[in-house]
Design a protein around this nucleic acid. Structure first.
Length: 283
DNA sequence: ATGTGTTCCTGTCCGC
DNA sequence: TGCGGACAGGAACACA
């Protein structure tokens, strides 16, 4: 479930295997994900040191010693697996690759990093590091929800006059970058706001109130994700997306967890996607 | 300019 | 146990 907290969890889980380390070689096992992979990707990765691993919205950015930055997007089903190799154990067998292991990176000193993506909605690209913000996938993104430029006045201004439901507005990456379907549902539940409310018709104080709630929900999810890093590090560890205690997401028919509320969680479809909410306490 | 619906792809789950 | 349909964490794109 790669929304911002999951991507941040993946990034943190990868730093040990990647940051400051040398890429020995890379193998591209399929020419395209959502779009064609960059020309000569394997050659451009081989021999480079990973200087830093960053995140922007739901994108992971790996700055390389060549002056290029590798951009990774996980789409819906993308995963990054890290397998350890025992140094000096020449007889250690590598687990077999699966058919959705599209890019395999061998690190000097013994780790293997695998990009796996069954649905192939994910993406990778290479760009000059000094022009990373101008990349077409990043240029139009709104502020980071955990950063300083995302604040009450900003959100109030952006919601003003909008005729679209608040659900769609918060999913719009140009307004705020990193929220996805799950966390928007969770945020609106905590805020007591119906996902159907038109963004521009919500009183400014309530819109402003969304800002700390968004921060809180994301921060909690990242903190919970941290606990799964241990799983991540385990040998040939599958990257476990953390299990988070969702209050409404995927809980259609269950009773509303809000204190004193006796409503039931409903599911509606908005712009083709499920919204879970409590019609009783979300208004 | 905005707002909404469709599309990419594979896997899983549920009802018959 | 097989089979069809609905649905899944995203977001670019085409169209009203």
């Amino acid at each position: 479930m790669p929304e911002l907290p999951e991507v941040e969890t993946v990034r943190r889980g990868l730093t040990g295997a990647l940051e400051g380390r040398l890429i020995e070689s890379a193998e591209v096992r399929r020419p395209d994900l959502r779009w064609p992979l960059p020309d000569r990707l394997a050659e451009r990765l081989a021999g480079q040191r990973v200087l830093a691993l960053r995140r922007r919205s739901k994108y992971i950015l790996a700055d390389l010693s060549s002056g290029e930055t590798l951009l990774i997007h996980l789409g819906m089903s993308g995963r990054i697996l890290v397998q350890g190799r025992k140094i000096g154990d020449f007889h250690h067998e590598q687990p077999a690759l699966s058919k959705h292991d599209h890019v395999v990176i061998e690190m000097a000193g013994g780790a293997r990093v695998i990009f796996n993506d069954a649905r192939r909605f994910g993406a990778m690209d290479l760009m000059p590091t000094d022009r990373a913000e101008d990349h077409w996938l990043l240029a139009g993104l709104g502020p980071e929800p955990l950063g300083n430029t995302f604040h009450e006045d900003y959100l109030v201004a952006r919601m003003k006059g909008r005729n679209t439901p608040i659900k769609a507005a918060l999913l719009d990456q140009r307004i705020v970058a990193g929220l996805g379907n799950i966390y928007v549902c969770e945020v609106l539940h905590r805020a007591g706001l119906s996902p159907r409310r038109k963004a521009g018709r919500i009183a400014a104080p309530r819109v402003a109130g969304l800002v700390p709630i968004i921060r809180e929900v994301l921060a909690e999810a990242i903190a919970a994700g941290g606990s799964s890093l241990r799983d991540y590090r385990q040998a040939d560890g599958e990257l476990g997306y953390f299990q988070h205690a969702f209050r409404v997401y995927d809980r259609e028919g269950e009773s509303c967890p809000a204190p004193g509320c006796d409503g039931r969680i409903a599911r509606i479809v908005q712009s083709g996607r499920s919204s879970f909410y409590c019609p009783s306490c979300q208004r």
